[in-house]
């Protein structure tokens, strides 16, 4: 049974990668958008570009993991191809996990490219272990958040619209362009209720000269978000097949 589920997850990820992710729409949404956003911000308000790197990586993680989820989930539900996956001996949780991992792995590829690019161009020396410690749980948290929002609605366009809500809320509130600590207290509390804040905190520490152990808390908070999102998402999907 476990073997069936593992095999199912593996082939679902592979197929989604081939048919949806490694295609121009997902790549441009996942990488071009964050780069353009950060560049636009930099041009309006020039300062040390290094300070924008954690925000850039965080945005890439957020946008690329969720780039094609509306398609892999809602579109497939609509066409019945997700139902076809369930005809095979694979559990529904494994199917959803396959979808979530597909997004996470695509996000990993995109954010790796962006991170290596920034490190090489700007000559930075981040702590690689810290980067991994923060990027992996971030990918899982955002991908499962995307999945949860997708199973809440029926149509692809509804899911796309719904996904934009946390995306833009988090860009403005979680310290992408402005440190959370410089915001009014009320907004600061809201910021700590959102996963991107922890991603950015963690990334800052990975890039700082003397990183502390606070990063463990950020990584754990992100894993917490992953669990918080994936369970209700699975449950909601189950409800569609009662």
């Amino acid at each position: 049974m476990w073997m069936d589920d593992f095999r199912g997850i593996y082939y679902i990820v592979l197929k989604d990668m081939k048919t949806y992710y490694l295609k121009p729409p997902a790549i441009s949404w996942g990488i071009v958008f964050p780069v353009a956003w950060i560049l636009a911000f930099y041009l309006r308000n020039p300062r040390s570009f290094e300070d924008l790197v954690p925000g850039l990586i965080a945005m890439t993680i957020l946008f690329s993991t969720t780039a094609a989820e509306a398609v892999v989930i809602n579109f497939e539900l609509r066409l019945g191809s997700l139902e076809r996956l369930l005809l095979s001996p694979i559990s529904l949780s494994a199917v959803l996990l396959g979808k979530v991992l597909g997004g996470a792995i695509f996000g990993l590829i995109m954010s790796t490219i962006i991170t290596i690019g920034s490190v090489v161009v700007l000559g930075l020396y981040p702590n690689l272990f810290y980067l991994i410690l923060i990027i992996i749980p971030s990918l899982l948290a955002f991908s499962s958040l995307g999945a949860l929002l997708c199973v809440l609605v029926r149509e692809v366009f509804e899911a796309q619209t719904l996904l934009n809500l946390p995306r833009f809320l988090m860009i403005f509130l979680c310290g992408v362009i402005r440190p959370v600590s410089s915001m009014p207290a009320a907004l600061e509390y809201i910021a700590y209720g959102m996963p991107l804040t922890y991603t950015i905190n963690g990334l800052w520490q990975s890039f700082s000269a003397s990183p502390g152990t606070m990063i463990l808390i950020d990584a754990m908070a992100l894993m917490g978000f992953f669990i918080l999102f994936i369970f209700p998402a699975t449950k909601l999907l189950y409800r569609k097949f009662e």
């Binding site: 019945g80 191809s81 005809l87 001996p89």
Partner: peptide, 15 residues
């Protein structure tokens, strides 16, 4: 599921 095949009402393979 391992032992049965299903032809759904609507053909839902990947376009």
């Amino acid at each position: 599921k391992k032992r049965v095949g299903v032809v759904p009402e609507f053909s839902n393979l990947y376009d």
